[in-house]
Amino acid sequence: MDVFNLFLSLVPVTLAQSLILSFVVLAVMIPFRILSFPDLTSEGSYPLGGCVCAVALLAGIPPLLALALAAAAGFLAGVVTAVIHLRFRIHTLLAGILVTTMLYSINLRVMGKANLPIFGEAKIYDFFPFDLGSINYTKIIIAGLFALLVFVMLNLWFRTERGIAMRAVGSNPDMSEAQGISVWKATIGGVGMAGAFAAIGGGLMVQSQGFSDANMGLGILINALAALMIGEALVGKQTITRQLAAPFVGAFAYYQLISLCLAAGLPPSDLKIATGVFVLLMLAGPELRRAKGPRAAQEAFRE
């Protein structure tokens, strides 16, 4: 019973966290699922967003604008990864690792030191006019509104002609090109968009925790991947709406699972292995279920 009560008491915190993480999950999902461009850049663009946001806040820039600056920086990081792949034919994963590695130094440069507290600055969460008794509820509402807005906007975008063209590039790049769609533009736009979302996640997190840290991205990618896998297992990915809902549902479910592990007494240092096991289970599950049937067709990714 203690475990359950502890779990319940953690829900407001984990809900706020998961809404913020859902942006990073989006940043993993969009290149991976929509552009067939498996990308690791979010491990670097998430802290980049955090660092830019913190520095901007300290410079007296209003929180919303600071978040926009973070998004712009993240977009740029994504663009760099995309161009490295497109221009030099370097594998997407390696391109992402290169950019992430370089971003670590850039993040330190941006901040000037490894850790930047912003406790005294105005935050995006301060704009909520009502006192709900706990800052966590305010965070849930603000981050939730952002998430809802992004979800609705993306649903609209991927139904426009350009959005459909972007999806086509992920589905069949050669065919898309033959239909007059620029693979370069779609890839740069999509991976850039993903970088912007990861950076917004970083910006929201920094404003939530009150400090920015050069190491805040460490392991965020595998958390996001775990969340995506869980989300896709729960809501599927057959339609674009489901595919777009998966990151949000997955982020929520993932943090509840982690919180359950903590409530059950798992030391925080063991969370990484728990996360790894979640990912493995989600990836291995369909394969095990199919073990007796014919092998599923391998998905084709760009190299």
Partner: peptide, 14 residues
Amino acid sequence: LAEMRQSPATLHKG
């Protein structure tokens, strides 16, 4: 997508 050969993609509903 085939139609996009003749008219480049816009921001209108597809």
